[in-house]
Nucleic acid binder design. Structure first.
Length: 547
RNA sequence: GGCCUUGUAGCUCAGUUGGAUAGAGCAACAGCCUUCUAAGCUGUGGGUCAGGCGUUCGAGUCGCCUCAAGGUCACCA
């Protein structure tokens, strides 16, 4: 079926064509849902927008259109208001058509093909395997995961990618730290200043290794030992990260390691291509890339004077490789502390002949954990930065995910632990899950809902509001895939829950004396539960049938 | 100083490609359970949308300036 909004759009287009001989795009017509119900079920500002082009008063334009628009079957009446708004009042039963659609589609309601099977690679988290995931990673993990769910729901062919920085200096620091802690496990004296990673997690890993492997790495050469600790360190840290991500319900399709880019010669061949481009130059024995030609504020070093590579070079190689793997649409989530990196990365890609506009970089602003109105910087238990695992154990996965997703990426995020810990109305997650549980409870009591094209008995104002909200879900999802504004899903889930709770308190769904009304109302409950579940599923928040 | 982000009710935040009288939650106050889960509902009060100028039929939304907060400016990753 064609949805109501699209149908209205078509009707307006036809009226414009017949009246003024104009052909306009959908975006121009801009069907809105007015906040005030006095302004109808839907409204269009098309008359205002065309005023200049038609050199005519917008009210006059609207009046000319009105007559044709009113002939449309699903429209009850059309009103011209204010400077030239066209307000549509729909026939009640045409609004209720969506209920059958929702129930029939079930889990697939809202699913669409706006992505047109386009291949898109989304890279997020990508934390170095040198320690635990902290709250900044958690925001990125929740966001990236939800975004990929939305994109996939909208018919994009999505790859979830994690980049493992396992070749740089920080891995050497990890290996050395592990080695020294390993020595300590055998009561050998070490210079504590040489331990780059002082955290207790490293001590634990070293002790585990000592317990499993014994003292055999005290007997080999230091080079051999460090090589071992490098490999085992990466493996163990990455395992830990994967376990924490699993707890957080975040799963990747692919892990690409930096070392693999070296092994496959991607880094070297990228360097050669850059050198051949004419955009490199030598200065004080280092090789520089002239990124200032591409909006960067200074040129960047590719190869240091000691012959080793900077992080930039393998990263350019990595992103070139992403394009080479057949993805023309790349999305990266970067922490706000990396924003300065964008220009040089895109510059490098441009030099290599890729279109940097196909790489969309979303910046995640910082997260602060708040308790009793004060920033909580360190875990009281471990003394380190607070990890995803600790947060999940404290407030639960659902709450953590929902909170992270409830604000725009652009906002600096204060995560309020006090609210997150409450299992009450102050906490929106419980409010929403409770709404869902109530729906299930009603349907458990009586599941004989009616499945019909129109529901003529759903005439309460609150019933109509709820139905209209349910019909917005698909457009919302499509819009979010475009704008990446995931937080709008949390607002939507709240709004639907709110409308339902309100309705629940106003009417009885089950009326033993009126089977007909009961059957129609139960259909609305069923449809609402489907939409809410689909919405929460995109957020990665679980529904509960009872609470 | 350059660049990125933010500034909306006492607090935390929404605000649909610029639209009609700026909205929620919390906090405050007053009500609602013999009834499908009160983890809920209903009502009241609360605003110089940081400030200024501009763009236009119309600006919280777009542009410029000022102020304030966070981030960032390595041959680190």
């Amino acid at each position: 079926m064609v949805d109501l909004k699209q149908n209205l759009m078509n009707v307006i287009k036809q009226a414009l064509n017949e009246t003024f001989g104009l052909i306009v795009a959908d975006e121009m017509i801009a069907i809105e849902t007015p906040k005030d119900k006095e302004h109808g079920d839907y409204a269009s500002t098309i008359a205002l927008r065309l005023s200049k082009q038609l050199k005519s008063n917008p009210r006059d334009i609207a009046i000319k259109l009105k007559e044709k628009l009113e002939k449309e079957e699903c429209i009850e009446k059309v009103e011209i208001a204010g400077p030239g708004f066209i307000n549509f009042f729909m026939k009640k039963d045409s609004l209720t058509k969506i209920i059958k659609t929702i129930i029939e589609l079930g889990d697939d309601y809202g699913r669409n093909l706006s992505g047109n099977h386009e291949k898109v690679m989304v890279e997020y988290v990508s934390a170095n395997p040198t320690g635990d995931l902290h709250l900044g990673h958690a925001r990125g993990a929740a966001y990236g995961d939800s975004l990929t769910r939305v994109l996939s729901f909208c018919g994009y062919d999505v790859l979830r990618e994690y980049y493992v920085n396992d070749a740089g200096h920080q891995i050497d620091v990890l290996a050395k730290s592990l080695f020294l802690r390993y020595k300590q496990a055998f009561n050998l004296e070490v210079n504590l200043d040489e331990i780059g990673y002082q955290g207790k997690d490293v001590i634990k890993l070293a002790n585990d290794i000592a317990a499993n492997e014994g003292d055999k790495y005290l007997k080999v050469s230091e080079i051999e030992a460090i090589e071992y600790f490098k490999n085992i360190g990466i493996d163990l840290e990455l395992d830990k990260i994967k376990r924490d991500l699993d707890l957080f319900r975040v799963h990747f399709d692919n892990y690409t390691s930096e070392r693999s880019l070296y092994k496959s010669n991607k880094v070297k061949s990228t360097l050669e291509k850059l050198e051949n481009s004419g955009y490199t130059f030598k200065n004080e024995n280092a090789l520089w890339l002239k990124t200032t030609d591409f909006n960067d504020d200074k040129d960047r070093v590719l190869v240091k004077s000691d012959g080793s590579y900077t992080y930039l070079l393998p990263d350019i190689a990595y992103h070139a490789d992403k394009f080479d793997r057949g993805y023309n649409k790349l999305i990266n989530l970067f922490g706000a502390d990396h924003h300065g990196y964008i220009a040089r990365l895109k510059g490098g890609l441009k030099i290599l002949g890729y279109n940097p506009d196909n790489l969309e970089i979303l910046i995640i602003q910082m997260v602060r954990l708040m308790e009793n109105g004060q920033e909580l910087k360190m875990s009281k238990r471990t003394g380190n930065a607070i990890t995803i695992r600790e947060l999940c154990e404290d407030v639960g996965v659902d709450v953590a995910r929902f909170f992270f997703l409830s604000k725009t990426l652009d906002s600096h995020f204060d995560f309020d632990l006090d609210v997150a810990r409450k299992s009450s109305s102050e906490n929106p997650v419980y409010y929403i899950q409770y709404a869902y549980a109530r729906m299930c409870s009603v349907l458990k009591k009586n599941s004989s809902f009616a499945l019909k094209d129109v529901y003529k008995l759903l005439i309460e104002e609150k019933e109509i509001s709820l139905i209209k909200s349910l019909s917005e879900f698909k457009d919302l999802v499509i819009d979010i895939a475009r704008t990446k504004e995931i937080h709008r899903l949390t607002s939507y889930a709240y709004k639907v829950s709110n409308l339902f709770h309100s309705l629940y308190n106003e009417i009885k769904f089950i009326d033993e004396d009126n089977q007909e009304v009961t059957a129609e109302r139960l259909a609305l409950v069923k449809a609402t539960s489907i939409v809410l579940k689909n919405c929460l599923n995109l957020l990665g928040v679980e529904v509960k049938e009872s609470m």
